[in-house]
Amino acid sequence: MSQVLTMWTKVSPLPLGERVFSLLFAQKAPYFASIRPRFTLIEPNRAELVIPKRRRVHNHLGTVHAIALCNGLEAAMGALAEATIPADKRWIPQGMEVAYTAKATSDITCIAETDAEQWTGSDPNLPVRVRGVRDDGTVVIEGVIRLWVTPRK
């Protein structure tokens, strides 16, 4: 089991465990701290986190800024990748394609998903499906983050 999944499994059930895990995760990649992600689920092939709607992540319209949304999607993807990747492989992001589909007027749940067979094939190109959802269920951003998955040296 990966370090991220091990830490999630141990810490998340504790009181304030999700918050503690989220702070620790943001220390690994400090830019993620700018959105104050709160992870709610990490398991192989799926990760979810919430970006709280607060002034620091607003755009000029008072909604969650598009780049803050992308930051949340990338954090969810990173947790998914770490929780899912076979021990003999490594990953690096290659790019992100997203569409902004509605205003982000509430907290946003960022979701990253893959299928198990994507990690066992020989194709190093691995698309991770990502989306951000408002409290009312409306998808505000969706797309793909492309990973390059290769054997560990």
Rank of each mutant, 00 (worst) to 15 (best):
E97H: 12
D123W: 10
Q118I: 03
A112M: 12
A87F: 03
A81N: 01
L147F: 05
R46W: 10
K53V: 08
L80Y: 02
R152W: 14
F39N: 05
L61K: 10
P15Y: 14
N125F: 00
A87C: 01
S22W: 06
D135P: 01
I85P: 11
R152F: 14
K10E: 06
G95H: 03
V57F: 14
D135L: 04
A112P: 00
L16Q: 05
W148Q: 13
V20L: 15
R55A: 13
W8A: 05
T105F: 03
R146Y: 10
W91N: 08
E82T: 03
K103C: 06
I108Y: 01
T40R: 10
T120Q: 09
V130N: 00
P30V: 15
Q118C: 04
T101L: 15
V128Q: 03
L126F: 05
S22N: 06
G78S: 12
I35Q: 10
R131G: 08
L69V: 08
V50C: 06
V149T: 10
Y31T: 02
P124D: 07
Q94W: 11
S22H: 06
A75F: 09
V64D: 03
S12L: 10
E142A: 15
N59G: 07
W148P: 04
H58N: 01
P124R: 13
R90I: 15
A79K: 02
S22D: 05
H58D: 00
P52I: 08
T63K: 04
A81M: 02
S22I: 06
G17I: 04
T84C: 09
I67R: 09
T109I: 05
R55H: 12
I35V: 15
P13I: 02
E18L: 00
I145K: 05
Y100A: 09
A102R: 07
T101M: 14
V57N: 11
A116W: 01
M77K: 01
W119L: 13
L23Y: 13
G17C: 04
N45V: 09
T105Y: 03
A83F: 15
T150P: 02
I108S: 02
M77L: 02
V20K: 12
M96I: 15
M77F: 03
K28A: 15
A68I: 09
E82P: 01
Q118M: 09
G132S: 07
A47R: 03
L80F: 03
R152M: 08
Q3Y: 13
E74G: 07
S122T: 15
G121M: 09
K103S: 14
P52Y: 08
I111A: 11
A26Y: 07
C70L: 13
